[in-house]
Design a protein around this nucleic acid. Structure first.
Lengths: 136, 136
DNA sequence: TAAAAATACTCCATAGGTATTTTAT
DNA sequence: ATAAAATACCTATGGAGTATTTTTA
């Protein structure tokens, strides 16, 4: 199997809490589910990341290195999502307007000026030709 | 749903090939499977990353930004795996040796010196007490 | 004995495959 | 007509839950 972001999240949670049950809670999953994914991650990487022998959980030296990298990766994934989120704001993305060619030349000259007059609509308004009306 | 590394890999493959079928092949999956994941990723992010209108696939401006970040993230995940891989080399990790207490005091003095004499075994050799023989 | 992690098992969501349809050139 | 992506449908893997066992202090 392959490393997943989920596994990295769970590992970071364990590093933060040093407690499987609390880590699971913070991830909104059950303790066994988290346990399993941590084991899978260790198996995937072929190394031991967490010591469960003593009374409290310990992160191995290599584990700490991995945890730090996991934090960075998860941060960058969040950034990626945020970038997208920012561009998702209504009307900052491109507006695709479909009109059948027959009436296009008559309707567009009336509609486009009004569209442009809306504050949120910026140049350029790009007009392309479509050969159908299948616009969703 | 959540962004997955798999989706980021597929997106990068599309950016590299600008062709869904070739991208799918390079990921060792079918074209529909890749198509679906790209759609899911776009849905997750709430933005359009790939233009499929014209004869050849185009990455949107926002898509390019996302692709660059995806590349970086995937690279760092590989690094993470490599770090682990490096520490997986046999006998650079700790060796856990279990012996029942009854015979421990008799056997260990004979075994440990030989263990130490092996080139790959370094100090410190840490000896702990176990209350059982359940060692895998 | 109590607290915490591992294991057993079951179920369901979903990733992926094959076959087909849609779309554009 | 051909090539490419989307869709439909089905199967199977595996992630997560509950219940239980194991382990350590």
């Amino acid at each position: 199997m392959n490393i997943t972001l989920k596994q990295l999240r769970y590992l970071v949670a364990v590093a933060d809490t040093l407690h499987f049950s609390k880590a699971a809670e913070s991830c909104f999953i059950s303790q066994p589910a988290l346990s399993t994914q941590i084991q899978l991650l260790e198996e995937n990487l072929g190394v031991s990341l967490v010591e469960r022998n003593k009374q409290h959980v310990l992160i191995t030296p290599l584990g700490s290195e991995i945890v730090e990298r996991a934090r960075r990766i998860l941060g960058e994934v969040n950034e990626l999502a945020n970038i997208a989120q920012a561009n998702r704001t209504p009307l900052t993305s491109s507006l695709c307007l479909g009109v059948i060619p027959t009436i296009g030349p008559y309707v567009l000259p009336m509609v486009l000026p009004q569209l442009r007059s809306l504050a949120a609509v910026c140049d350029p308004v790009c007009v392309r030709c479509w050969n159908g009306i299948s616009v969703k």
